[in-house]
């Protein structure tokens, strides 16, 4: 019962976001019918659109959403998914370029492991700053996004630039390091990897002491420390590191599964969209898949909308923002409902 209410509210949030976008488009003088038509065709209009535009775009959102959710459950806000994604992509590009002649069963794990390590190292800076100096991870992870963006720019005009040296982009990664693809589509192994991660996260939070403790430090750090005898700082660090590692993996999967190369604007803000995904799913692993596919569809449709209806793709940010806000509002309203014990 409770779960269905949550699902209904999440759907209402998305509809609210789309509704507000429609109002905004009308106000700005666009034809919302044409816009939504293009959006829908781009996302679900054909099997190819769904399997090759929507699903591949949902992969980074699902993985990044999971990364955000893991830290969020422990009471930490990792708003640096975008940056961790980018350094993961850098690492995957660098390693992927060296995998010529290596069998794929070795090349792919090596490249993805590299992106995991890169993401973890990138978030290790905020973790260290939080534990040693008390700097809030919210701000430090956020600031590092911009550093990562500049780093990508530096890489594609420096060490990782294509051999021809014309465009600011890398050479394609070696073939063995590319993820296998479902025939006739652009759907790659990363999608199934994402589903496997979701399953692992579900098991972690529902069946293990570690996952339970992560939730405990998020909801009641003092009680977790005094009653659970948990070292809150260490567990928070672990949680953030895992969060960053997963975000790094998302970058690696994007390079090995979709782009095969590194370039500027590799991410159209996946790291931020993923926050909306995780919040919409309220951190529930299966919900992240649903919300990830939904927002993947929005991303895919946004391209078609810009092409066919002349509406800038950034317009979908409005949908995301409104979705986040409606979910937050619903939760805040629930929180305020008085309980019998509190009414004294």
């Amino acid at each position: 019962m409770n779960r269905w209410m949550t699902v209904r509210r999440s759907i209402a949030a998305v509809l609210g976001g789309l509704g507000l976008l429609a109002i905004g488009l009308v106000a700005a003088g666009y034809d919302p019918g044409a816009a939504f038509g293009a959006l829908f065709r781009g996302a679900f209009g054909s099997w190819y659109a769904f399997s090759s535009a929507t699903l591949p775009r949902s992969v980074p959102l699902i993985i990044l959403g999971l990364g955000f959710a893991i830290a969020y459950r422990s009471g930490a806000l990792n708003i640096g998914g975008e940056g961790q994604f980018l350094v993961g992509a850098i690492a995957a590009t660098w390693l992927g370029g060296m995998m010529g002649g290596v069998p794929p069963v070795l090349a792919i794990p090596i490249v993805l492991a590299g992106s995991v390590v890169a993401g973890a190292l990138w978030i290790a800076i905020p973790v260290l700053l939080r534990l040693r100096f008390g700097v809030l991870e919210v701000i430090s992870t956020l600031l590092l996004n911009f550093v990562a963006e500049a780093l990508v720019s530096l890489m594609v005009q420096g060490p990782l630039q294509e051999a021809k040296g014309i465009y600011p982009q890398s050479d394609p990664i070696a073939v063995p390091s590319r993820l296998p693809i479902v025939g006739g589509t652009r759907l790659h192994l990363g999608f199934f990897l994402a589903l496997a991660l979701i399953g692992a996260a579900w098991f972690l939070f529902h069946r293990t002491l570690l996952g339970f403790r992560m939730k405990a430090i998020g909801l009641g750090p003092k009680a977790a420390h005094l009653v659970g005898r948990i070292s809150v700082g260490s567990l928070l660090a672990v949680s953030l590191l895992v969060s960053g590692a997963i975000a790094g993996l998302a970058g690696g999967v994007e390079v090995t599964g979709v782009t095969y190369a590194l370039f500027q604007n590799l991410s159209p803000g996946y790291g931020f969209t993923a926050i909306a995904v995780a919040l919409l799913a309220r951190g529930h692993p299966l919900g992240i898949v649903a919300a990830g596919v939904l927002f993947g569809a929005l991303e895919a449709g946004a391209g078609a909308m810009q092409r066919d209806a002349g509406i800038p793709a950034v317009a979908v940010y409005v949908v995301q923002a409104v979705t986040i806000i409606i979910v937050l509002l619903a939760d805040a309203t629930l929180r305020r409902r008085p309980t019998p014990a509190a009414a004294t």
């Binding site: 002491l209 339970f212 405990a216 909801l219 009641g220 003092k222 009680a223 659970g228």
Partner: peptide
């Protein structure tokens, strides 16, 4: 704030005092 976690169920609050 220190004895219980309000959002947790009774069972989860019992589980809070777990060690390995």
């Amino acid at each position: 704030t220190e004895g219980i976690i309000g959002e947790f169920s009774l069972v989860e609050n019992i589980a809070l005092a777990s060690d390995a």
